[in-house]
Design a protein around this nucleic acid. Structure first.
Length: 1114
RNA sequence: AGGUCUGUAGCUCAGUUGGUUAGAGCAUCGCUCUGAUAAGGCGGGGGUCGGCAGUUCAAGUCUGCCCAGGCCUACCA
């Protein structure tokens, strides 16, 4: 064989030129020490040069789309393994459907708006508060956000491409594009016109330092322990006779009873409106030190402990006297004297005892102080009972004029003073402190206030009617749509996501921020509102040409009109509501906004919605998955996606979260350079991470993929090209790629082809159901079948020098398998699959074949190649071989020692044929002279039986146990008779063959191994001839090792010299001269006394000694 | 605190409608094979299937309660 060229370098510079290879070489030989990362970089350039990605899309018909929607990431940070995992899934599925003949457009998208970038810019410009930003200028601030939001796009592009993901970055969408934002307005107006949008209050975490409310995400970042007052107050109740007299104003007639109420937020007391009790809890009136208090019975002893008996005293005098006990509901409506007089009396429920289920008696006094402006539950109760909102705080969280005592003092700061005031009035029953977990402002560390904020909401409770006239509330539509989605893993549908939908509440759409899509509502002073749904509309209404829809551009535009239909001018003035939209609204609008629907491409919308496929992480359940679902249901009463793969979270190897600070994970780019992208992809896909479970990421795991999957495959390719080139050069091979070939007569060939068809069927089934986790194990198993059975068993067929039919069939088969298999692998291992395809197909310029494996059609099952009985037969033979190998091992008979015969005992006639069919294979694999098939195993094994619990259990029920014991005691003969079809009568019933499971025990002193299907025995007697053969094989092995150690090429011819004093060795070498010289490609084999001995070249077989010398024949 | 997922060999995980002695890969130890292979083969060691109850002739599997971990959600006054 000629020097193989250095293909890598050549291809880098001349990617299309293959003709420079020597004419005698058929295939480019893969480098045995190939660096996979280098190979991948080369493939990337090849794709770029060929424009393969664009071709793979354009080659497929427009009217056969597979629609994929990509969730947009933020480019303010670098991609991490979570992105790589989702990205790999987002690559595999589209590649697969492309190869199935669909046109799969893949547009990348960028999330541009929102807090991540606003926070970065605030830090950069040292703008700490909302006021700082407005003083700085919203226009300048937004410009800075725009300029900073794409910091890492280059790194993203590079890493995403390097991972082998094909996605269109040039045609990407951005949520800040005017077209995208216009479509978001359209979506908003659709909701508005359906009556879903309303303005209302919701309790939100509020940072007084920043003068803004915060998102839950921000709140969750800064929970910490905090010491707060824990105060029990005594509210003076009025006389009870006013109960039920709804219109009677307070008489201020005091009773002598007080209500104990617990709070940790004294600053909310000036806004107290009511007290809540649980209707079903017991409340007790006690007399203590001359005063009467109501308290939840369950809390009584916590507040009024029973005095302990002192030594000598019998029963201590009770300090607390129980007067009466009743249910909370019996106290409903009792009035109390308010602590403060800041509020107007607007509702007869004000300052009364109200009933609420959320009240518990776990701690406190079992009665809750209600300030509807300052707590979620308070707010809900206030809404129900018609209480007004009273919020005496200004934007900075300081008391306003209505509370003159604490005017200008911050809410939390006023706690102490308020308590002092109340103590002076005798209203504080108990004052302690407690430590509890409380949210703080993540930027300023100031404790947050929960207060009612005016917001824009999307109602989930409004009825919507679909095209078929069916009416449901939006929430019910969402639940309805969710039923149509194929979730992987399935449990999310009814579990995490389904439950979340069940409990979904109206969506708060507004954010008091700056860099986002504006809420397109203009308000008049009288509360009248206009919703703008497009740029043209805005231009018409304002008479201004607008190209950018960001806040600083839009806010100054005032709409003046008399008539909302004709927009006649000079009427009321409408000004835009200042909020921007929740960014999730933009993400949820992505299916429409990325294609500027309905302003462009409206006619093709139906074909593209809902999309076939999306894939994101588990954390998107409440994020993207949810907002997509809301808007899909709101606009079209349809699900926003048909299939979704939810990936799990990737953890570091130690099971902790990946942490930059702890450096407990390798840098993705460096790992790619150390291992390769294909291996990382496969490692991630071959895990429960593709069904929503977490994955512990380990570099060792990735390296194992290289070792267990990539290298064996690479070596298969290498074997094939090496032998093909060698044979081709010597003119020992007629087969050529692309030549028509008839079906192989060799069982191994037909087996591996059938095995491949089974794999194809499996991959198709699993991919069609989006169960990626079932695909990789099947692929890996096929690699094992291919390398460790097909190729190992076929080696000699490639090695032999005759250009016969068998050899040509072997080449044709392996070639076909490798090419087809490269197509199966293409979605999963896009680089290695491409390299195989390039070497085996593209570089040969086989007519009619695409230039890239990714432009090929996914192989479909060829029923003519599928032969399930053959697969079963081969499984049986492999079992027989395994039993035989096990026997050799157990009895310490080396495989190089040929044995006389193997006896296989079969269970039936068809097995007999199957074993005899493959006798040659078994003989060679087990190194035996003959295989004898027998149907009677009585001489080899003894039968024992076990009860078949499955079949007997149903019949026998309780008698199962006794029968099982009897079955275990059955004799060999009884079992034999049962097996032959005779039923056995027992007290408990009749036994038939199916009711027992036969266990074979080998008879003493025999070399026998049994499995449920087969029994195998080995004749281990060795005669003179067998011994000579063994020595010959040992010699071959030794010589081959010497060849290898000397660095000779596979095809080099050698001369062999032997020194031995052993007559047996001499006889073996002489007898098997032809065999040995053929095996080791020796031109001569002679004896010599002048060979220097070393450990490497001497051979000691059971005391027979020989020394070898091998030299290359020039 | 609630929801949800997970808990099976040293590690990563399979385990069908409940049914024999709970499996695989990796790792480890011993033996072995090999001119494609950094591989392959055979065997060994290694398990109270998170715990406790219950249903059943029979529970890793079904039910209940509890424990641990992850994620999501959450102002309990």
């Amino acid at each position: 064989m000629k020097e193989s060229p250095k293909p890598r370098k050549m291809l880098n510079s001349l990617p299309f030129l293959f003709t420079t290879r020597g004419a005698s070489t058929m295939f480019r030989s893969p480098d045995k020490n190939q660096s996979f990362p280098e190979m991948e970089e080369r493939i990337l350039k090849l794709w770029e040069g060929d424009d393969s990605f664009q071709l793979s899309v354009k080659n497929r018909p427009v009217d056969k789309p597979f629609v994929f929607n990509d969730g947009p990431p933020f480019a303010t940070g670098l991609p991490h393994y979570g992105h790589l995992l989702a990205g790999t899934i987002k690559d595999i599925v589209p590649r697969y459907w492309t190869m199935k003949g669909y046109r799969v457009e893949r547009r990348f998208g960028w999330d541009c708006h929102g807090l991540p970038i606003e926070n970065i810019i605030q830090d950069k410009l040292s703008l700490h508060t909302v006021k700082d930003i407005t003083n700085f200028g919203v226009d300048k601030f937004n410009d800075a956000c725009r300029a900073g939001v794409f910091t890492y796009t280059k790194e993203w592009r590079k890493t995403v491409a390097r991972m082998g993901r094909w996605v269109d970055f040039d045609n990407e969408y951005k949520t800040m594009d005017p077209g995208f934002m216009e479509s978001v307005w359209w979506v908003f107006k659709q909701c508005f016109d359906k009556g879903l949008i309303y303005q209302g209050y919701r309790i939100q975490p509020y940072s007084p330092a920043l003068a803004t409310s915060l998102s839950n995400f921000e709140v969750n970042q800064a929970y910490k322990d905090r010491q707060d007052p824990s105060v029990t107050l005594a509210f003076q109740l009025e006389a009870p006779h006013h109960v039920g007299d709804l219109h009677a104003p307070s008489t201020k007639e005091e009773s002598d009873e007080q209500m104990l109420v617990w709070t940790t937020t004294p600053w909310t007391l000036p806004a107290n409106m009511a007290i809540a009790l649980h209707p079903d809890l017991d409340y007790t009136l006690v007399r203590h030190e001359g005063k009467k208090y109501w308290i939840a019975e369950a809390r009584r002893t916590a507040y009024f402990p029973e005095p302990k008996a002192k030594k000598g005293e019998a029963t201590p005098p009770a300090a607390t006297e129980v007067l009466k006990t009743c249910k909370g509901r019996e106290l409903a409506g009792r009035r109390y004297k308010p602590l403060f007089e800041y509020m107007e009396y607007t509702n007869d429920k004000q300052y009364t005892l109200l009933m609420a289920d959320f009240v518990s008696a776990d701690d406190g006094a079992g009665a809750v102080h209600i300030a509807p402006s300052f707590g979620e539950e308070d707010f809900q109760l206030g809404q129900r009972e018609g209480l007004s909102l009273f919020d005496p705080l200004d934007a900075d969280g300081k008391f306003m004029d209505v509370v003159p005592e604490w005017k200008g003092i911050g809410a939390k700061d006023a706690d102490k003073s308020i308590l002092q005031h109340l103590k002076a009035q005798g209203r504080v029953f108990k004052h302690e402190t407690m430590v509890h977990s409380y949210p703080h402002c993540w930027r300023t560390d100031v404790p947050l206030l929960y207060r009612a904020q005016k917001n824009w909401f999307l109602s989930l409770e409004k009825p919507l009617t679909d095209a078929h006239g069916v009416t449901k509330t939006l929430k019910d539509w969402m639940i309805h749509c969710n039923r149509q989605i194929n979730w992987v893993p399935e449990h999310i549908k009814g579990g995490r996501f389904g439950k979340w939908l069940d409990g979904a509440r109206d969506w708060n759409l507004s954010r008091n921020r700056f860099w986002g899509t504006c809420i397109p509502i203009w308000l008049a002073e009288d509360g009248d509102m206009l919703c703008v749904g497009s740029v043209d509309e805005l231009c018409a209404l304002t008479g201004t040409k607008v190209v950018d829809l960001h806040k600083h551009i839009i806010d100054p535009l005032v709409i003046k009109t008399k008539d909302k239909k004709t927009f006649a001018a000079d009427g009321k003035e409408y000004r835009r509501t200042p909020e921007v939209l929740d960014c999730w609204f933009e993400s949820g609008s992505m299916p429409y906004a990325q294609r500027h629907h309905p302003f462009e491409n409206a006619d093709s919308f139906d074909a593209n919605f809902p999309p076939d496929f999306i894939a994101e992480g588990l954390d998107q359940t409440r994020g993207w998955f949810y907002t997509l679902t809301v808007l899909g249901a709101a606009l079209f009463q349809k699900p926003a996606f048909k299939n979704v793969i939810v990936n799990g979270i990737i953890l570091a190897e130690d099971g902790q979260k990946m942490s930059k600070r702890l450096k407990n994970y390798p840098d993705p780019n460096e790992l790619i350079d150390r291992t390769c992208a294909d291996a990382i992809r496969l490692f991630m896909i071959d895990s429960a991470a593709v069904k929503g479970e977490e994955l512990k990421f380990s570099e060792i795991g990735v390296k194992n993929i290289v070792r267990a999957v990539l290298l064996p495959l690479w070596n298969s390719l290498s074997l094939f090209t090496t032998y093909a080139n060698a044979d081709h050069e010597k003119g020992q091979l007629s087969w050529r790629p692309g030549l028509a070939q008839s079906a192989s007569s060799n069982e191994l060939d037909r087996w591996v082809l059938s095995d491949l068809q089974q794999l194809l069927a499996k991959v198709q089934t699993e991919m069609d159901a989006y169960r990626l986790y079932n695909v990789v194990p099947a692929v890996v198993e096929f690699i094992d079948d291919l390398t460790n059975w097909y190729i190992r068993r076929s080696r000699r067929r490639f090695w032999k020098s005759e250009d016969d039919q068998d050899k040509n069939q072997a080449y044709a088969t392996l070639y076909r398998v490798l090419v087809d298999f490269s197509k199966v692998l293409a979605p999963f291992l896009p680089f290695l699959a491409e390299e195989i395809y390039q070497i085996l197909v593209r570089e040969l310029k086989v007519p009619g074949q695409p230039v890239s494996v990714h432009l090929c059609d996914f192989p479909v099952v060829d029923p003519s190649l599928l032969d399930a009985p053959l697969n079963a037969r081969m499984a049986l033979v492999r079992q027989a071989v395994n039993l035989g190998r096990s026997l050799r091992s157990a009895h310490n008979v080396k495989n190089r020692q040929p044995l006389r015969q193997l006896i296989v005992v079969v269970r039936n006639q068809s097995q007999k044929r199957e074993i005899l069919d493959m006798e040659d294979l078994i003989r060679e694999e087990l190194n035996v002279k003959s295989v004898t098939v027998s149907e009677d195993e009585s001489s080899l094994v003894t039968y024992k039986a076990k009860a078949n619990f499955k079949s007997l259990g149903a019949k026998l029920g309780k008698a199962m146990k006794t029968v099982a014991e009897k079955v275990a005691k059955l004799s060999h003969e009884e079992i034999k008779s049962l097996l032959s079809g005779t039923a056995l009568k027992l007290e408990e019933g009749e036994l038939v063959a199916e009711d027992i499971l036969v266990v074979r025990e080998t008879r003493e002193g025999l070399v026998v191994e049994a499995s449920p299907d087969l029994t195998v025995a080995l004749d281990t007697s060795i005669d003179h001839g067998l011994r000579l053969e063994m020595l010959a094989r040992e010699s071959v092995s030794k010589i081959q090792n010497l060849r290898k150690d000397s660095g000779f090429e596979v095809t080099d011819r050698v001369e062999v010299q032997v020194k031995t004093g052993s007559p047996l060795f001499r006889e073996a070498l002489e007898t098997h001269f032809a065999y040995i010289t053929a095996e080791v490609l020796a031109g001569s084999l002679g004896f010599s006394e002048s060979i220097a001995e070393s450990e490497a070249n001497s051979l000691d077989v059971n005391g027979e000694f020989a020394v070898f010398s091998v030299s290359r024949k020039v």
